[in-house]
Design a protein around this nucleic acid. Structure first.
Lengths: 363, 363
DNA sequence: CTGTTAGCGCGTTCAT
DNA sequence: ATGAACGCGCTAACAG
């Protein structure tokens, strides 16, 4: 005979084990454990006892496979979980998903685009019910592919490029503009900029905001005062130090994220320079640095929660829509071949933008 | 007829779809996609083309179910992912697991013991291949149950209570003792203690270390100078302020974690008091606070990596051991009833302890 | 109320 | 080199 018939399976007790022990069929056991009412109380108790004795836990995977309702898993794709920004995102996301019985699978790419591709492919293979991603580079083909495969995708902090997907953004432009404007209002005229690599969406948006504020004040930003490309505080510190060493150094700095703000702070303090500091992102102890600091803040947990809500909507949408095709009982057989084109029906992509707020520290 | 025979299934293309399109049997398609060599190159190409055209992705879940080799998922149970301590743990863990093709499922309990129970049960139901946990309270029954169910469990930062499991710890006692000893060496005699609730293992171990240092200097710690129970910086700040307001206040404070250190720092600065500060856990900007600070540091990523390695060992162990029972072809049927007792065979529980180091900031 | 049949998507075993 | 049957663990549909 092909399969080994009734070998004492290695691992955990199965539904049939429970059924045999309770001397009922697997079906009855299944009903009991699913709290199906139409079961004789006596039988129910026997089954429950058997299950308890065996330490039976239903195999959620097999069940989901049978039900075809998805895995109850959502993939989270980020570059660096150690960054508080991402860990808060993860937390906010998980809190919303968890309330709906979904679990979050983390995928840390460490800035590697190739790792990101593989990760997304792996998640799709695992049949996650959805993906929340903060893509590292500007190539989002893998996400587009996943979306085309019918996996709901939500982007956080960056908009989709080249395909349709929901996203939740921060008001990068407005926040940066307002913070820069505040420096201008204090009389600063030479304001430097420290930011992430140009490929990073948030960084360039914030640069746009910075430029807009300068333009509004009829100022032309000095190209030598703009430094992009710093990812870590020590890189930012070095870049800031170089700006401060210029013949006519800036009297204020705007930093496009907390890594750059912290680096700039160190440089300014080391140089004992009288330079005003402003930056995007709040961070712990920002108020304790002994330097005046203007920060653009926002609710970073809400970023994750909003992403979670968008995703949940799409997941539910997919669950109910099902076979709501246009033509009914179509028998034109040759159309079957052209299947496989994106199934991104539903409503158009939504975009949530989180407001920012300016706070002043130190002084 | 029962099951709807050949309805155009809703979701994604399946192996059979590929097979039909390539005009081969499902088996052949399966072989091609698994790179089985014994297949005619021509057939192989047809199948590959069909798969590509359909955008086919093998269902990893169904595959794993069939193979019975587990899900490739590992559960991580922590109280607060927003705390850098836990996010680094997650990162270190995921880096080790990812190299072996395993994915990490996060479970954030938010200090709620009940949530922790449910979470662990859910993870077991999902058939994770293992669990890494930092239990919140001292009741670890749920973890013990999981372990008894045959799921490898590794504890991080706290030892198992009431059952056998691998764990990776930090040298809480030694680190706290050394830091306190350094304060003593500087001439301090009244040293306060700020720490987490008594139920937290690390907190009480660090308290033990603090006490040991005092004893070694023939000092008896003043009970009024010991404050446990602070979880957040603002609670710690308040507690520290109360210590500083005492008739004969401590001239130095030892804090059992970074939440307490940060709170204490704020209190000391607010009071402009000349109080020396020491604490467990490093944190960003600790060097920039303008106050001398002695910190007990350790490699918090390594905590996660070590946990990952321990877990991987156990998972592999379980994979190979399989049916290595003692008796062969045993037919003594009545022993089947007593199944369900812990299967925690393998080697005895291992315990990894991470070394700590003292660093001095500020000054 | 309970048992039988069938199949989710896949891979192993045996046959051709 | 390819295909048929069977089962992983579980449940919806139909009997009885």
């Amino acid at each position: 005979m092909p399969g080994t018939p009734r070998e004492p399976r290695s691992g955990r007790p199965t539904l049939r084990d429970v059924a045999e022990k309770a001397e009922v069929s697997a079906m009855t056991a299944s009903r009991v454990l699913r709290d199906d009412p139409r079961v004789l109380p006596a039988t129910r108790d026997r089954v429950r006892a058997a299950a308890a004795a065996l330490g039976y836990r239903p195999n959620e995977l097999a069940r989901r496979l049978r039900l075809g309702r998805g895995t109850g898993l959502v993939g989270l794709v980020v570059t660096n979980l150690a960054n508080p920004f991402y860990s808060r995102l993860a937390l906010g996301l998980d809190s919303v998903l968890g309330a709906d019985g979904l679990k979050t699978v983390i995928g840390n790419t460490g800035q590697d685009p190739e790792a990101e591709r593989e990760l997304v492919a792996d998640l799709v293979g695992r049949r996650v019910d959805g993906i929340v991603a903060v893509p590292a580079g500007d190539d989002q083909c893998h996400l587009a592919a996943a979306a085309a495969d019918g996996v709901p995708v939500v982007l956080a902090s960056r908009p989709p490029r080249g395909f349709a997907a929901d996203c939740v953004l921060v008001d990068d432009y407005g926040g940066a503009r307002d913070a820069t404007a505040r420096l201008l209002a204090r009389g600063h005229r030479r304001i430097g900029f420290l930011g992430s690599p140009p490929a990073v969406y948030t960084g360039t948006e914030r640069l746009r905001g910075y430029r807009a504020a300068l333009s509004a004040a009829s100022l032309c930003p000095d190209a030598r005062h703009i430094r992009q490309g710093q990812t870590q505080p020590h890189e930012a510190e070095r870049a800031a130090a170089e700006l401060l060493a210029l013949p006519d150094p800036p009297t204020a700095l705007f930093c496009s994220n907390n890594r750059n703000t912290i680096g700039a702070f160190r440089a300014v303090r080391a140089a004992r320079a009288d330079v005003a500091l402003a930056g995007f992102d709040d961070f712990e102890l920002a108020d304790a640095l002994g330097l005046p600091l203007t920060l653009v803040t926002y609710d970073s947990d809400e970023l994750g929660r909003a992403a979670g809500r968008l995703l949940l909507d799409r997941i539910r949408e997919r669950g109910t829509a099902d076979t709501a095709g246009t033509a009914d009982t179509a028998d034109t057989a040759d159309t079957a071949d052209t299947a496989g084109t994106a199934d991104t029906a539903g409503a158009d992509a939504r975009r949530v933008v989180l407001a920012t707020e300016l706070v002043e520290y130190g002084g």
